[in-house]
Nucleic acid binder design. Structure first.
Lengths: 118, 118
DNA sequence: ATAATATGGCACCAAAAGGTATCATGTCAA
DNA sequence: TTGACATGATACCTTTTGGTGCCATATTAT
């Protein structure tokens, strides 16, 4: 019994880097689909879609289930959790950024001679 | 006057897809740095780091400011906002997923002591 | 001015990525 | 059984990517 392997962050980010794959995810969020149904939505060959689906599965973003002669592709949104966690680290900075944005905007003078050298 | 151009989602996702670039972002979150200072942190040549920084800038994730003969690279966490927004669409699904996960987990061998938060 | 420093730019390279076409295999329906 | 259907698996191609090395240019320190 193969447990849904936990993908590393890299394979998930890699899977998300392609626009077609992100569109596939949106499509699958609306209804799980066979490969053929996915192919019908995009202007590339089945071979290309197949590759995308494999990469999405490697990234943990979908799961593929056999149903007769079809393979049903289902969104696995929990894989986005690790991405979200990674992003959350930066939230503190973008909060600061929003706070400082107002003062920083017109103040283009290099008032930051921070020079840390060990 | 060139406003900080709003990068499209694709260039941001693309910038995030490389592990070295993600590490650079973490490094820059701690202190803005010249190119040379970034180079010192990684085991690749300056040319490679330079390319990474350009891609990060294209993704809106950093800004590059000239200071004398140096180029100061500064984290621009606000670019992560668009990524975050994209992810948020899927939150509804992964909430469902969490809800179903609980029942799924209880029917299986506890292989994953991960806490769910939120 | 001159040398050291910091970076830009370019040519080049191997590997990965995205895509196609083709053939093979498993499954369903008649 | 047999053909149609859905997919798997390859081989192949082109472009992109991540990387290197080298030379040019702009600043800074002496």
């Amino acid at each position: 019994m193969k447990a849904a392997r936990t993908p590393d962050l890299q394979s998930t980010f890699r899977a998300l880097a392609d626009p077609t794959r992100r569109e596939i995810l949106v499509f699958l969020s609306q209804h799980e689909s066979s490969i053929g149904e996915v192919v019908d939505q995009f202007d590339v060959t089945r071979g290309a879609i197949k590759k995308h689906l494999v990469i999405l599965e490697e990234g943990g973003l979908i799961s593929i289930h056999t149903r007769g002669r079809e393979r049903i592709n289902r969104l696995e949104p929990s894989a986005l959790h690790s991405v979200n966690s990674w992003l959350q680290y930066f939230e503190q900075f973008w909060d600061n950024n929003l706070r400082n944005l107002k003062t920083a905007i017109e103040q283009r003078t290099p008032t930051n001679p921070k020079r840390k050298k060990q």
